[in-house]
Amino acid sequence: MQYLAPTSVDEVVAALAQADGRARVLAGGTDLLVQMKSDMIAPDILVDIKRIPELREITREGGGWRIGAAVSGAEFNEHADICADWPGLAEAFDLIGSTQVQGRCTLAGNLCNASPAADSVPAMVAADAVARVAGPNGTRDVPVVDIPVGPGKTSLAAGEFITSIFLPARAPRSADAYLRFIPRTEMDIAVASAGVSLTLDDDGSCVAARVALGAVAPTVLLVEKATAALIGTRLEGAALAALAQACESAATPIDDKRGTVEFRKQVVGVLARRAARVAQNRAEERA
């Protein structure tokens, strides 16, 4: 196995283009190294992107934030300004792994692992985040929701990799929240999860909302009917019940060792409702 640690995006693109055999991009390695150690994959070439300076940075861009693909959970959560704008994404990112894993895990890695139960992905989808992809044909921007196409599968073409995640500028009175259900309190994987991002007007009415669900379909789901349930409401009981119903209906989970279809559908509605309430409270506090 060959290990490369280039210092520029172009070098990574070149390395991936010239790769003879199976190549994998290494950021934190919190999924990749585990899969290698447990004999699930055996790449021929590992391309480490942690030595590329711009991939290690969080920068302001047009009122939004650009987060390098090698920025770790710990670095993100120590960035007070980004956490103030996106408390829901911050809490989702922080749920990944232990303190040790937090020092290595990345948003781009969590996204490319393409698990429907990935904690940061529903929060990113709710945030309308966009991934910047570099590859042999140049650079393109892809909404995060379009990156995973099934468990373990992404829409990235051969030789492509994610260089950053972009979070759009925040309107006033906006906030997000993320909740997951696990049987324990930590060190676990979501049985169902929900990310909600919303914006209130001066009267407290919801003027924009995105609701994304995890672990209840082959990919993270953006639930448009959930948006409709919230827009124009103050998240009263009926609106929240409609939200929960929309999420239950949208969910197409499976029975497995972590939960049943029935359970996941019921709980994902509860989580969306509770997350919406948390986001609302945060948005009101930001006024």
């Binding site: 324990r184 309190t185 930590e186 676990d188 060792k257």
Partner: peptide
């Protein structure tokens, strides 16, 4: 991960 013994915070 899926054989769930309690962790300290449980």
């Amino acid at each position: 991960l899926d054989y769930r013994i309690p962790v300290a915070s449980d």
